[in-house]
Amino acid sequence: MAITDSKTPITDGFAPFHVTNAGKPCQTWYKIVGSLDSSPFPPLVCLHGGPGGDHRPMVEPFMPLWDKLGIPLIFYDQLGAGNSTHLAEKNGDTAFWSLELFLDELRNLISHLGLEKRQDGFSLFGQSWGGMLACSYAATRPRGLTKVINSSGPASMPLYMEGVRELIKGLPLDVQKAIGGCERAGDTTSDKFQAAEMVWIKKHLYRTEGEFPEAIKDMLEDVKKDPTVYMTMCGPSEFQMTGSMKDMVLWQDAHQIEVPVLVLNGRYDEVTDRCLEPWFKEIPNVKWIQLDNSSHLGMYEEQERFVEILANFLTT
């Protein structure tokens, strides 16, 4: 572990992670912003989206939680992403890239950092796929967990796809035809498809004017370089769920979650209300807040409001 900033304590390191059938040693990279030893609130472990994305898009929006409140932030890159071990040789191996793999990785990281032994415990934040992972982990009733925030993490992928198909009907007719035609042709790289996808992005993923923030652009470029996890678990695009996640339904165990849960999404989110509603119905202690001017990336689209909501939930 190395301290890299004298004003804001920032440490990073690797947690060794034994994975059966990986074929090589694996490790999970993590970064801790703040001090775990002297904080008024439990640390917040941040689970990124994708699957196959990385931690970078969450750093800048979340810094006020440390700067203003002193909540320690723990970011990490999941296996196959970012600074953690990549396994491109496992591309297409749906048995290997599973929900349980990432739950095991999360457990391993928490144990490595000793979070489950803390008197004040720890909280989880999950964005999109990370929200699915966070709620699934919470349903196992782990020691030390105090609160969970699920930001746009579907309870059911079939319900997610139902919502996507409904949202596509609201796009301009030429965009609908382009998406449908390119999907049938197996074409997700042409200019025609990319243009149609950008219309979707600007309506249901990131509605803010201008380009993606640099952290998101850098993350997406790296996913293109190694699409192993995303392609195996999801598929070629947001509109085609062909991977191991396509039939994933997680809400059946939600009644076992014992800690308070905050569910978030945007009014224009590609993760529609219908695929979040099972969380709200099944989790015993749950609150649902919708961001009126956001789609999928409320942490950027309504950054101040987003951080305010998280701060209120984590400190009360």
Rank of each mutant, 00 (worst) to 15 (best):
T316L: 04
K90P: 14
A2G: 15
R207Q: 15
V59D: 07
S98W: 06
G80C: 11
L99W: 01
Y137C: 03
D12F: 10
D222L: 11
M132D: 07
G186P: 06
V286N: 09
A88L: 11
S98K: 06
V263S: 11
A196V: 03
T272Y: 04
G144A: 12
N285G: 01
D218P: 02
Q194E: 07
M299C: 09
Q127N: 14
L171Y: 02
Q78W: 08
N83C: 04
S98D: 05
S237N: 14
P213S: 10
P236H: 09
K217W: 11
Q290S: 13
Q290F: 04
A139T: 00
W66E: 10
M233K: 13
K31Q: 15
P40K: 06
S98Q: 10
D226H: 12
S6D: 14
E162L: 13
R267E: 15
L99R: 02
L124C: 09
L291M: 14
G235W: 08
T242R: 08
A215E: 15
T146W: 00
D222I: 03
S38V: 07
L124W: 03
F212L: 15
Q240A: 10
P42W: 00
P154F: 13
P154S: 14
S156E: 14
F96N: 10
W279V: 07
F75G: 12
G13L: 00
P236C: 11
A95G: 15
E183W: 00
S35L: 03
R143Q: 15
M241L: 15
P236S: 04
L106G: 07
F17E: 02
S6N: 13
P61D: 07
G180H: 12
A95E: 15
G50A: 08
M157N: 12
A81T: 14
E100H: 10
L220R: 13
P40E: 02
M233G: 09
M233H: 08
C135M: 06
E214C: 08
A139F: 05
M161I: 04
P42T: 01
Y30E: 05
I3Y: 15
E166K: 12
P42L: 01
W251M: 00
V261S: 01
Q119P: 03
E166Q: 12
T20C: 07
F17M: 08
D77M: 10
K192D: 08
P227F: 02
K117R: 14
G298M: 12
G170H: 13
P172T: 06
G181C: 03
R165N: 09
Y30T: 08
F96R: 05
N312A: 00
I74M: 07
P260K: 00
S190M: 01
Q78G: 10
E277C: 01
V59A: 02
K287M: 13
G130A: 12
E221C: 05
D247M: 01
L103K: 09
I74G: 09
K24A: 15
V229C: 10
Q252S: 11
Q176A: 12
L159T: 07
G131Y: 06
Q78Y: 09
